[in-house]
Design a protein around this nucleic acid. Structure first.
Length: 465
RNA sequence: GCUGGCGUAGCUCAGUUUGGUUAGAGCGCCUGACUGUGGAUCAGGAGGUCGACGGUUCGAACCCGUCCGCCAGUACCA
Protein backbone atom coordinates (compact mmCIF):
# COMPACT_ATOMS: atom_id res chain seq x y z
CA UNK A 1 0.00 0.00 0.00
CA UNK A 2 1.31 3.40 -0.90
CA UNK A 3 1.78 5.57 2.11
CA UNK A 4 0.76 9.18 2.02
CA UNK A 5 3.36 11.63 3.22
CA UNK A 6 2.08 13.27 6.40
CA UNK A 7 2.71 16.95 5.92
CA UNK A 8 1.01 20.26 6.50
CA UNK A 9 0.34 22.87 3.85
CA UNK A 10 2.94 25.63 3.50
CA UNK A 11 2.27 28.43 5.95
CA UNK A 12 -0.21 26.33 7.94
CA UNK A 13 0.69 24.67 11.18
CA UNK A 14 -0.38 22.23 13.84
CA UNK A 15 -0.56 23.24 17.47
CA UNK A 16 0.42 20.33 19.68
CA UNK A 17 -1.03 20.07 23.20
CA UNK A 18 1.43 22.33 25.00
CA UNK A 19 1.11 25.23 22.56
CA UNK A 20 -2.59 24.70 21.92
CA UNK A 21 -3.14 24.90 25.64
CA UNK A 22 -1.25 28.19 25.91
CA UNK A 23 -3.22 29.62 23.03
CA UNK A 24 -6.47 28.63 24.70
CA UNK A 25 -5.36 30.40 27.85
CA UNK A 26 -4.53 33.61 25.97
CA UNK A 27 -7.92 33.51 24.24
CA UNK A 28 -9.85 32.99 27.43
CA UNK A 29 -8.08 35.91 29.11
CA UNK A 30 -8.86 38.26 26.23
CA UNK A 31 -12.46 37.06 26.13
CA UNK A 32 -12.90 37.71 29.82
CA UNK A 33 -11.52 41.24 29.49
CA UNK A 34 -13.65 42.10 26.43
CA UNK A 35 -16.79 40.78 28.10
CA UNK A 36 -16.01 42.99 31.08
CA UNK A 37 -16.23 45.96 28.66
CA UNK A 38 -19.62 44.84 27.39
CA UNK A 39 -18.55 43.54 23.97
CA UNK A 40 -20.89 40.92 22.50
CA UNK A 41 -19.68 37.68 20.90
CA UNK A 42 -20.19 36.93 17.22
CA UNK A 43 -19.06 34.23 14.83
CA UNK A 44 -18.97 34.44 11.07
CA UNK A 45 -18.07 31.84 8.42
CA UNK A 46 -14.53 31.24 7.22
CA UNK A 47 -15.76 31.69 3.64
CA UNK A 48 -17.19 34.87 2.17
CA UNK A 49 -18.23 35.69 -1.35
CA UNK A 50 -15.19 37.07 -3.11
CA UNK A 51 -16.93 40.34 -3.98
CA UNK A 52 -17.49 41.03 -0.27
CA UNK A 53 -13.74 41.02 0.29
CA UNK A 54 -12.44 42.66 -2.87
CA UNK A 55 -11.45 46.28 -2.98
CA UNK A 56 -11.01 47.05 0.69
CA UNK A 57 -7.52 46.02 1.53
CA UNK A 58 -5.41 47.72 -1.11
CA UNK A 59 -3.82 46.31 -4.21
CA UNK A 60 -0.95 44.50 -2.55
CA UNK A 61 -3.21 42.83 0.00
CA UNK A 62 -5.86 41.79 -2.50
CA UNK A 63 -3.29 39.54 -4.12
CA UNK A 64 -3.01 37.74 -0.80
CA UNK A 65 -6.64 36.71 -0.55
CA UNK A 66 -7.10 32.93 -0.64
CA UNK A 67 -9.58 32.35 -3.44
CA UNK A 68 -11.65 29.21 -3.91
CA UNK A 69 -14.55 27.92 -5.99
CA UNK A 70 -17.69 26.71 -4.27
CA UNK A 71 -19.17 23.41 -5.53
CA UNK A 72 -21.62 25.61 -7.47
CA UNK A 73 -18.66 27.32 -9.14
CA UNK A 74 -19.20 30.57 -7.25
CA UNK A 75 -16.18 32.71 -6.44
CA UNK A 76 -15.58 32.57 -2.72
CA UNK A 77 -12.59 33.34 -0.49
CA UNK A 78 -11.27 32.66 2.98
CA UNK A 79 -11.78 35.74 5.12
CA UNK A 80 -8.77 38.09 5.16
CA UNK A 81 -9.70 39.67 8.48
CA UNK A 82 -12.67 39.85 10.85
CA UNK A 83 -13.46 43.48 10.11
CA UNK A 84 -15.02 43.21 6.66
CA UNK A 85 -17.28 40.31 7.78
CA UNK A 86 -18.36 42.53 10.68
CA UNK A 87 -19.22 45.32 8.24
CA UNK A 88 -21.28 42.79 6.29
CA UNK A 89 -23.27 41.51 9.26
CA UNK A 90 -24.13 44.92 10.70
CA UNK A 91 -25.52 45.80 7.26
CA UNK A 92 -27.26 42.45 6.87
CA UNK A 93 -28.93 42.27 10.30
CA UNK A 94 -30.10 45.78 10.97
CA UNK A 95 -31.81 44.99 14.27
CA UNK A 96 -28.51 44.68 16.15
CA UNK A 97 -28.14 47.12 19.06
CA UNK A 98 -26.36 50.32 18.03
CA UNK A 99 -23.69 51.24 18.64
CA UNK A 100 -22.80 47.60 18.17
CA UNK A 101 -19.89 46.47 20.36
CA UNK A 102 -18.67 43.11 19.17
CA UNK A 103 -15.80 40.76 19.96
CA UNK A 104 -14.74 37.87 17.78
CA UNK A 105 -11.75 35.60 17.45
CA UNK A 106 -10.90 33.14 14.77
CA UNK A 107 -8.63 32.22 11.91
CA UNK A 108 -8.00 34.57 9.05
CA UNK A 109 -6.02 33.68 5.94
CA UNK A 110 -3.45 35.59 3.95
CA UNK A 111 -1.46 34.00 1.16
CA UNK A 112 1.82 35.76 1.80
CA UNK A 113 5.29 34.48 2.53
CA UNK A 114 5.47 32.63 5.86
CA UNK A 115 8.04 33.94 8.34
CA UNK A 116 8.83 33.27 11.99
CA UNK A 117 5.68 34.21 13.86
CA UNK A 118 3.81 34.75 10.61
CA UNK A 119 1.59 32.18 8.98
CA UNK A 120 -0.92 31.91 6.19
CA UNK A 121 -3.56 30.98 8.72
CA UNK A 122 -3.49 32.93 11.95
CA UNK A 123 -5.79 33.89 14.76
CA UNK A 124 -7.03 37.40 15.35
CA UNK A 125 -8.98 38.54 18.36
CA UNK A 126 -10.95 41.68 17.54
CA UNK A 127 -12.98 44.21 19.48
CA UNK A 128 -14.92 46.74 17.42
CA UNK A 129 -17.54 49.43 17.90
CA UNK A 130 -19.86 50.12 14.97
CA UNK A 131 -22.16 53.12 14.82
CA UNK A 132 -20.39 56.04 16.45
CA UNK A 133 -17.85 58.60 15.36
CA UNK A 134 -17.06 59.59 18.91
CA UNK A 135 -13.50 59.01 20.10
CA UNK A 136 -15.03 57.38 23.15
CA UNK A 137 -15.07 54.27 20.97
CA UNK A 138 -11.32 54.51 20.27
CA UNK A 139 -10.75 54.96 23.97
CA UNK A 140 -12.72 51.87 24.88
CA UNK A 141 -11.04 49.55 22.36
CA UNK A 142 -7.57 50.84 23.23
CA UNK A 143 -8.27 50.50 26.91
CA UNK A 144 -9.60 46.96 26.45
CA UNK A 145 -6.57 45.86 24.44
CA UNK A 146 -4.18 47.38 26.97
CA UNK A 147 -5.97 45.59 29.79
CA UNK A 148 -5.96 42.28 27.91
CA UNK A 149 -2.26 42.45 27.10
CA UNK A 150 -1.45 43.33 30.69
CA UNK A 151 -3.42 40.37 32.00
CA UNK A 152 -1.69 38.03 29.57
CA UNK A 153 1.64 39.32 30.81
CA UNK A 154 3.50 40.11 27.61
CA UNK A 155 5.93 42.48 29.30
CA UNK A 156 6.20 46.15 28.51
CA UNK A 157 4.52 47.46 25.39
CA UNK A 158 3.59 50.71 23.68
CA UNK A 159 0.45 51.63 21.81
CA UNK A 160 1.50 53.85 18.89
CA UNK A 161 -1.24 56.07 17.54
CA UNK A 162 -1.58 58.32 14.53
CA UNK A 163 -4.42 59.45 12.29
CA UNK A 164 -5.12 59.04 8.61
CA UNK A 165 -6.51 62.57 8.72
CA UNK A 166 -3.08 63.82 9.74
CA UNK A 167 -1.42 61.76 7.04
CA UNK A 168 -3.79 63.07 4.39
CA UNK A 169 -2.99 66.59 5.52
CA UNK A 170 0.73 65.85 5.14
CA UNK A 171 0.25 64.63 1.59
CA UNK A 172 -1.63 67.81 0.79
CA UNK A 173 0.97 69.98 2.53
CA UNK A 174 3.80 68.32 0.66
CA UNK A 175 2.12 68.86 -2.71
CA UNK A 176 1.94 65.17 -3.64
CA UNK A 177 -1.17 64.22 -5.66
CA UNK A 178 -3.85 62.67 -3.44
CA UNK A 179 -3.92 59.42 -5.42
CA UNK A 180 -0.34 58.73 -4.35
CA UNK A 181 -1.18 59.02 -0.65
CA UNK A 182 -1.20 55.27 0.04
CA UNK A 183 2.27 54.93 -1.48
CA UNK A 184 3.60 57.74 0.68
CA UNK A 185 1.99 56.28 3.83
CA UNK A 186 3.66 52.97 3.19
CA UNK A 187 7.10 54.55 3.01
CA UNK A 188 6.59 56.74 6.08
CA UNK A 189 5.54 53.69 8.07
CA UNK A 190 9.04 52.28 7.59
CA UNK A 191 10.97 55.14 9.18
CA UNK A 192 11.70 53.27 12.39
CA UNK A 193 12.93 50.31 10.44
CA UNK A 194 15.09 51.73 7.66
CA UNK A 195 15.98 55.27 8.77
CA UNK A 196 15.65 58.73 7.25
CA UNK A 197 18.27 58.28 4.55
CA UNK A 198 16.52 55.27 3.00
CA UNK A 199 13.14 56.94 3.37
CA UNK A 200 14.42 59.77 1.22
CA UNK A 201 15.63 57.32 -1.42
CA UNK A 202 12.33 55.45 -1.49
CA UNK A 203 10.43 58.71 -1.90
CA UNK A 204 12.60 59.65 -4.86
CA UNK A 205 14.77 57.40 -6.99
CA UNK A 206 14.55 54.12 -5.12
CA UNK A 207 17.32 52.11 -3.50
CA UNK A 208 19.04 48.75 -3.36
CA UNK A 209 18.51 46.75 -0.20
CA UNK A 210 21.12 44.68 1.62
CA UNK A 211 20.51 41.66 -0.60
CA UNK A 212 21.02 43.72 -3.75
CA UNK A 213 17.33 43.81 -4.64
CA UNK A 214 16.07 47.07 -6.12
CA UNK A 215 13.20 48.85 -4.39
CA UNK A 216 11.59 51.30 -6.78
CA UNK A 217 11.15 54.90 -5.60
CA UNK A 218 8.07 57.08 -5.80
CA UNK A 219 9.76 59.72 -7.91
CA UNK A 220 8.67 62.68 -5.80
CA UNK A 221 10.16 66.14 -6.31
CA UNK A 222 12.75 67.70 -4.03
CA UNK A 223 10.13 70.13 -2.80
CA UNK A 224 7.73 67.28 -1.96
CA UNK A 225 10.44 65.49 -0.06
CA UNK A 226 11.66 68.48 1.86
CA UNK A 227 8.13 69.17 3.09
CA UNK A 228 7.65 65.54 4.08
CA UNK A 229 10.90 65.78 6.00
CA UNK A 230 9.55 68.80 7.88
CA UNK A 231 6.80 66.47 9.01
CA UNK A 232 9.04 63.53 9.87
CA UNK A 233 11.23 65.82 11.94
CA UNK A 234 8.32 66.25 14.37
CA UNK A 235 8.84 64.70 17.78
CA UNK A 236 7.02 61.53 18.69
CA UNK A 237 5.91 60.25 22.04
CA UNK A 238 4.37 62.76 24.41
CA UNK A 239 0.85 63.31 23.10
CA UNK A 240 0.37 66.97 24.07
CA UNK A 241 3.67 67.92 22.49
CA UNK A 242 2.91 66.05 19.26
CA UNK A 243 -0.56 67.64 19.09
CA UNK A 244 0.95 71.10 19.43
CA UNK A 245 3.44 70.53 16.64
CA UNK A 246 0.86 68.94 14.33
CA UNK A 247 -1.51 71.84 14.82
CA UNK A 248 1.10 74.42 13.95
CA UNK A 249 2.44 72.55 10.90
CA UNK A 250 -0.82 71.19 9.43
CA UNK A 251 -3.60 73.10 11.16
CA UNK A 252 -5.93 72.37 14.07
CA UNK A 253 -8.44 70.51 11.95
CA UNK A 254 -5.99 67.77 10.91
CA UNK A 255 -5.68 66.50 14.46
CA UNK A 256 -9.06 67.23 15.99
CA UNK A 257 -9.77 63.51 16.47
CA UNK A 258 -6.40 62.90 18.11
CA UNK A 259 -7.02 65.83 20.41
CA UNK A 260 -10.37 64.46 21.56
CA UNK A 261 -8.86 61.01 22.01
CA UNK A 262 -6.00 62.38 24.08
CA UNK A 263 -8.40 63.91 26.58
CA UNK A 264 -10.36 60.67 26.97
CA UNK A 265 -7.18 58.65 27.36
CA UNK A 266 -6.17 60.99 30.17
CA UNK A 267 -9.49 60.28 31.83
CA UNK A 268 -8.87 56.50 31.83
CA UNK A 269 -5.32 57.13 32.99
CA UNK A 270 -3.56 55.93 29.88
CA UNK A 271 -0.77 58.48 29.71
CA UNK A 272 2.11 58.95 27.28
CA UNK A 273 4.12 56.24 28.97
CA UNK A 274 1.88 53.64 27.32
CA UNK A 275 -0.17 55.31 24.55
CA UNK A 276 1.93 57.64 22.42
CA UNK A 277 1.37 59.63 19.24
CA UNK A 278 3.76 58.71 16.48
CA UNK A 279 3.36 60.65 13.18
CA UNK A 280 5.05 57.86 11.19
CA UNK A 281 2.46 55.16 11.94
CA UNK A 282 0.28 54.53 8.87
CA UNK A 283 -0.94 50.88 8.90
CA UNK A 284 -1.31 48.92 5.70
CA UNK A 285 -5.04 48.52 5.08
CA UNK A 286 -6.78 50.98 2.79
CA UNK A 287 -10.06 51.20 4.67
CA UNK A 288 -8.81 53.28 7.61
CA UNK A 289 -10.11 56.85 7.73
CA UNK A 290 -9.19 58.27 11.17
CA UNK A 291 -7.03 57.26 14.10
CA UNK A 292 -4.86 54.18 13.55
CA UNK A 293 -3.02 52.24 16.22
CA UNK A 294 -0.57 49.44 16.70
CA UNK A 295 1.06 47.77 19.67
CA UNK A 296 4.75 46.95 19.81
CA UNK A 297 6.57 45.04 22.51
CA UNK A 298 9.34 47.09 24.12
CA UNK A 299 11.92 44.34 24.48
CA UNK A 300 10.84 42.25 21.48
CA UNK A 301 10.45 44.65 18.55
CA UNK A 302 11.45 41.91 16.12
CA UNK A 303 8.00 40.36 16.35
CA UNK A 304 6.46 43.42 14.71
CA UNK A 305 3.16 44.67 15.95
CA UNK A 306 1.19 42.27 18.10
CA UNK A 307 -2.02 44.23 17.68
CA UNK A 308 -3.33 46.80 15.23
CA UNK A 309 -6.44 48.68 14.32
CA UNK A 310 -8.10 51.95 13.59
CA UNK A 311 -11.20 53.84 12.52
CA UNK A 312 -12.99 52.87 9.32
CA UNK A 313 -15.94 55.19 8.79
CA UNK A 314 -16.76 54.22 5.22
CA UNK A 315 -16.49 50.45 5.25
CA UNK A 316 -20.10 49.63 6.11
CA UNK A 317 -21.33 52.03 3.40
CA UNK A 318 -20.39 49.40 0.86
CA UNK A 319 -23.25 47.24 2.09
CA UNK A 320 -25.94 49.67 3.25
CA UNK A 321 -27.08 53.30 3.09
CA UNK A 322 -27.05 53.52 6.87
CA UNK A 323 -24.40 55.78 8.36
CA UNK A 324 -22.27 53.44 10.46
CA UNK A 325 -18.83 54.80 11.29
CA UNK A 326 -16.72 52.25 13.16
CA UNK A 327 -13.46 51.56 14.94
CA UNK A 328 -11.71 48.36 15.91
CA UNK A 329 -8.59 46.84 17.38
CA UNK A 330 -7.24 43.40 16.57
CA UNK A 331 -4.83 41.30 18.61
CA UNK A 332 -2.54 38.97 16.67
CA UNK A 333 -2.79 35.91 18.89
CA UNK A 334 -0.15 33.89 17.04
CA UNK A 335 2.36 36.70 17.22
CA UNK A 336 1.76 36.97 20.93
CA UNK A 337 2.25 33.24 21.20
CA UNK A 338 5.55 33.51 19.32
CA UNK A 339 6.68 36.53 21.33
CA UNK A 340 5.94 34.88 24.64
CA UNK A 341 8.42 32.22 23.58
CA UNK A 342 8.88 28.80 25.07
CA UNK A 343 6.93 28.68 28.25
CA UNK A 344 9.17 27.16 30.90
CA UNK A 345 6.30 26.33 33.21
CA UNK A 346 5.08 22.79 32.84
CA UNK A 347 1.67 22.15 31.45
CA UNK A 348 -0.37 19.64 33.35
CA UNK A 349 -3.25 18.00 31.55
CA UNK A 350 -4.53 15.94 34.49
CA UNK A 351 -4.42 16.09 38.26
CA UNK A 352 -4.67 12.33 38.59
CA UNK A 353 -4.06 9.33 36.36
CA UNK A 354 -5.94 6.19 37.36
CA UNK A 355 -3.89 3.15 36.44
CA UNK A 356 -5.35 -0.25 35.63
CA UNK A 357 -4.00 -3.57 36.88
CA UNK A 358 -6.85 -6.05 37.16
CA UNK A 359 -8.38 -6.37 33.72
CA UNK A 360 -11.41 -8.21 35.07
CA UNK A 361 -12.35 -5.28 37.28
CA UNK A 362 -12.44 -2.55 34.63
CA UNK A 363 -15.82 -1.35 35.87
CA UNK A 364 -14.25 -0.50 39.23
CA UNK A 365 -11.63 1.69 37.57
CA UNK A 366 -14.30 3.48 35.56
CA UNK A 367 -16.20 4.17 38.78
CA UNK A 368 -13.14 5.49 40.58
CA UNK A 369 -12.33 7.83 37.71
CA UNK A 370 -15.86 9.23 37.59
CA UNK A 371 -15.97 9.67 41.36
CA UNK A 372 -12.86 11.80 41.18
CA UNK A 373 -14.20 13.84 38.27
CA UNK A 374 -17.43 14.45 40.15
CA UNK A 375 -15.28 15.78 43.00
CA UNK A 376 -13.70 18.32 40.67
CA UNK A 377 -10.42 16.50 40.12
CA UNK A 378 -9.16 16.40 36.54
CA UNK A 379 -8.82 12.67 36.09
CA UNK A 380 -7.31 10.68 33.25
CA UNK A 381 -8.10 6.96 33.19
CA UNK A 382 -5.31 5.00 31.51
CA UNK A 383 -6.82 3.60 28.33
CA UNK A 384 -3.91 1.58 26.99
CA UNK A 385 -3.97 -2.20 27.05
CA UNK A 386 -0.68 -2.92 28.74
CA UNK A 387 -0.87 -4.54 32.14
CA UNK A 388 2.45 -3.28 33.50
CA UNK A 389 2.56 -0.35 35.86
CA UNK A 390 5.74 0.91 34.31
CA UNK A 391 4.12 2.01 31.06
CA UNK A 392 1.25 3.57 32.91
CA UNK A 393 3.44 5.63 35.21
CA UNK A 394 5.49 6.71 32.24
CA UNK A 395 2.27 7.91 30.68
CA UNK A 396 1.30 9.75 33.87
CA UNK A 397 4.69 11.43 33.72
CA UNK A 398 4.22 12.45 30.09
CA UNK A 399 0.89 14.15 30.74
CA UNK A 400 2.47 15.72 33.78
CA UNK A 401 -0.06 14.44 36.30
CA UNK A 402 0.34 15.31 39.96
CA UNK A 403 -0.63 11.91 41.33
CA UNK A 404 -1.12 8.34 40.17
CA UNK A 405 -3.93 6.25 41.61
CA UNK A 406 -2.90 2.61 41.85
CA UNK A 407 -5.37 -0.19 42.56
CA UNK A 408 -4.21 -3.81 42.26
CA UNK A 409 -5.26 -7.06 43.85
CA UNK A 410 -3.74 -6.07 47.21
CA UNK A 411 -5.72 -2.87 47.31
CA UNK A 412 -8.95 -4.50 46.25
CA UNK A 413 -8.56 -7.03 49.09
CA UNK A 414 -7.94 -4.35 51.69
CA UNK A 415 -10.55 -1.94 50.35
CA UNK A 416 -7.97 0.82 49.79
CA UNK A 417 -6.27 2.58 46.95
CA UNK A 418 -2.61 3.57 46.70
CA UNK A 419 -1.86 7.17 45.79
CA UNK A 420 1.56 8.12 44.54
CA UNK A 421 2.66 11.75 44.53
CA UNK A 422 4.57 11.95 41.28
CA UNK A 423 6.25 15.27 42.01
CA UNK A 424 7.64 13.95 45.30
CA UNK A 425 8.71 10.80 43.48
CA UNK A 426 10.59 12.79 40.90
CA UNK A 427 12.49 14.60 43.63
CA UNK A 428 13.34 11.31 45.31
CA UNK A 429 14.75 9.79 42.14
CA UNK A 430 17.35 12.51 41.84
CA UNK A 431 19.46 11.26 44.73
CA UNK A 432 19.12 7.53 44.27
CA UNK A 433 21.55 5.99 41.86
CA UNK A 434 20.64 2.37 42.55
CA UNK A 435 17.34 0.94 41.44
CA UNK A 436 16.73 -0.88 44.74
CA UNK A 437 17.15 2.27 46.74
CA UNK A 438 15.00 4.23 44.36
CA UNK A 439 12.20 1.66 44.50
CA UNK A 440 12.27 1.74 48.26
CA UNK A 441 11.99 5.51 48.39
CA UNK A 442 9.38 5.38 45.74
CA UNK A 443 7.21 3.18 47.94
CA UNK A 444 7.77 5.30 51.01
CA UNK A 445 6.13 8.33 49.46
CA UNK A 446 3.01 6.39 48.55
CA UNK A 447 -0.07 6.44 50.73
CA UNK A 448 -2.85 3.97 51.17
CA UNK A 449 -6.23 5.62 51.43
CA UNK A 450 -9.51 3.86 52.24
CA UNK A 451 -11.46 3.61 49.03
CA UNK A 452 -14.45 5.59 50.28
CA UNK A 453 -12.30 8.53 51.41
CA UNK A 454 -10.38 8.71 48.16
CA UNK A 455 -11.96 11.78 46.59
CA UNK A 456 -11.80 13.87 49.75
CA UNK A 457 -8.22 12.91 50.56
CA UNK A 458 -7.10 13.58 47.01
CA UNK A 459 -8.66 17.02 47.05
CA UNK A 460 -6.63 17.81 50.15
CA UNK A 461 -3.45 16.42 48.65
CA UNK A 462 -3.97 18.50 45.52
CA UNK A 463 -4.82 21.64 47.51
CA UNK A 464 -8.23 21.87 45.93
CA UNK A 465 -10.01 22.62 49.19
C1' G B 1 6.88 38.69 -5.04
C1' C B 2 12.46 39.76 -5.36
C1' U B 3 17.84 38.45 -3.92
C1' G B 4 21.04 34.93 -1.67
C1' G B 5 22.03 30.36 1.08
C1' C B 6 20.56 25.44 2.32
C1' G B 7 17.65 20.42 1.75
C1' U B 8 21.06 13.21 4.51
C1' A B 9 16.65 9.04 10.35
C1' G B 10 11.30 12.17 14.62
C1' C B 11 15.37 16.17 16.15
C1' U B 12 20.67 18.15 15.69
C1' C B 13 24.20 17.06 12.27
C1' A B 14 28.85 14.20 9.80
C1' G B 15 29.78 12.32 4.80
C1' U B 16 29.47 16.11 -0.98
C1' U B 17 35.78 19.58 -2.24
C1' U B 18 39.08 14.39 -4.96
C1' G B 19 31.57 10.26 -7.94
C1' G B 20 33.09 3.68 -6.52
C1' U B 21 31.39 -2.30 -2.18
C1' U B 22 25.49 -3.24 2.75
C1' A B 23 24.95 5.73 4.16
C1' G B 24 26.82 7.03 9.82
C1' A B 25 26.75 9.49 15.03
C1' G B 26 24.34 11.73 19.30
C1' C B 27 19.59 12.58 21.26
C1' G B 28 14.65 10.75 20.96
C1' C B 29 11.40 6.44 20.07
C1' C B 30 10.18 1.00 20.71
C1' U B 31 11.20 -4.00 23.18
C1' G B 32 13.38 -6.63 27.23
C1' A B 33 16.15 -7.23 32.24
C1' C B 34 15.95 -5.36 37.35
C1' U B 35 9.91 -10.22 38.41
C1' G B 36 3.27 -4.12 41.10
C1' U B 37 6.46 1.72 40.27
C1' G B 38 8.16 7.21 36.27
C1' G B 39 14.36 8.14 36.92
C1' A B 40 19.34 5.80 36.40
C1' U B 41 21.95 1.48 34.40
C1' C B 42 22.43 -2.71 31.03
C1' A B 43 21.02 -5.63 26.47
C1' G B 44 18.55 -5.46 21.89
C1' G B 45 15.43 -3.11 17.90
C1' A B 46 12.77 -0.12 14.43
C1' G B 47 13.28 4.08 11.35
C1' G B 48 16.36 7.07 5.48
C1' U B 49 14.10 5.14 -2.50
C1' C B 50 20.19 11.05 0.97
C1' G B 51 13.55 16.90 -1.04
C1' A B 52 11.28 15.47 -6.25
C1' C B 53 11.95 14.69 -11.37
C1' G B 54 15.24 14.58 -15.43
C1' G B 55 20.41 14.54 -17.40
C1' U B 56 25.92 13.23 -17.53
C1' U B 57 28.51 8.50 -16.31
C1' C B 58 30.16 1.62 -16.45
C1' G B 59 28.62 3.72 -11.63
C1' A B 60 25.49 9.69 -8.40
C1' A B 61 23.80 11.49 -1.47
C1' C B 62 28.16 13.71 -4.14
C1' C B 63 28.52 16.68 -10.95
C1' C B 64 24.59 19.54 -14.25
C1' G B 65 19.33 21.30 -15.09
C1' U B 66 14.22 22.13 -13.64
C1' C B 67 10.73 22.15 -9.85
C1' C B 68 9.29 21.95 -4.66
C1' G B 69 10.44 23.06 0.34
C1' C B 70 13.20 25.48 4.31
C1' C B 71 16.29 29.64 6.20
C1' A B 72 18.08 34.83 5.93
C1' G B 73 17.42 39.76 3.97
C1' U B 74 13.70 42.75 1.36
C1' A B 75 8.60 43.85 0.09
C1' C B 76 3.87 43.45 2.60
C1' C B 77 1.51 42.74 7.16
C1' A B 78 -1.34 40.65 12.88
Amino acid sequence: MERIEPQSVKGFRDLLPRIANRKNRIISIIRKVYESYGFLPVETPALEYLEILLGEYGEENTKQIFRLKSPEEQDVALRFDLTVPLARIVAQYNDLPKPFKRYQFGSVWRADKPDPGRFREFTQFDADVVGTSSQLAETEVISAVVRALQEIGVGEFIVNVNSRKVLNAVVQYSGVPAERSKDVFRVLDKLNKIGMYNIELELTKGRYDASGDFIPGLGLTDDNVSRIKDYLALPKGDRKKVLGELASLLGEESCSDLKALDAYLDAVRLDSSIVVYDPTIARGLDYYTGPVFEVNLKDKPQFGSVAGGGRYDNLVKRFTDAELPAVGFSIGVDRLLAALGEDQSETSFADAVVTIMERDKLNEYLKIANELRAAGIRTDLYLGEEKGLRKQLQYADRVNARVAVIVGSNEFEKGVVTVKDLKAGEAASKDSAQREEWLKKSREIQREIPRRELAGELRKLLNLE
